[in-house]
Amino acid sequence: MQERVAVITGGSSGMGLTVTESLAAQGWHIVVLDRSVSETELGPNISPKAVDVTNYNQLAEAFLQTWKAHNRLDFGYVTVFANAGIAEKKPFYETQQPEELLPHPLDMQPLAIDLEAVINTAYLAMHFMRMNQDGKGGCILINSSTAGLYSTPNVPIYCAAKHGCLGLMRALAPQLMGEKIRVNSIHPSVIHTGLMSNKGWSSFPEDLFTPMSKLVAVVNMLIKDEGMFAQSIEVIMDQHFFRKGNEYSNADV
Rank of each mutant, 00 (worst) to 15 (best):
R4K: 13
Q65P: 06
V32G: 01
G27T: 03
W28L: 05
P103M: 07
R4Q: 07
L33G: 02
L101S: 15
N45D: 12
L23I: 05
Y56P: 02
A60F: 04
T66I: 09
L106G: 08
P44N: 10
G16D: 00
E94P: 02
L64W: 06
S22D: 12
Q2K: 14
Q97C: 08
K89P: 02
A69N: 11
Q65V: 06
Q65R: 12
K68F: 13
E3R: 09
L42Y: 01
V80G: 15
A62V: 00
P103H: 08
I86F: 07
A69K: 15
P103Y: 04
E3C: 05
K49W: 03
I30Q: 01
P103L: 07
I8N: 00
M15E: 00
Q97F: 15
Q26G: 04
E3Q: 11
G10A: 03
L106Q: 12
N55S: 06
G16W: 00
T66L: 07
T66D: 03
Y56W: 09
V80I: 11
K89F: 03
V19P: 01
G85Q: 12
Y56V: 05
Y56E: 03
K89R: 08
P91F: 09
S38H: 09
I30Y: 00
A69G: 07
L102E: 08
W67F: 11
K49S: 02
E88F: 12
L59M: 11
A84L: 07
L64M: 10
N55Y: 03
L64N: 12
E100W: 03
E41Q: 09
E94S: 11
E94Q: 13
R72H: 13
E61L: 01
V37T: 09
E94W: 15
S36Y: 13
L23R: 15
F75P: 07
S38A: 10
L23P: 10
F81H: 06
N45W: 05
A87E: 11
L33S: 04
L73Q: 10
K89T: 07
G16I: 01
E100A: 02
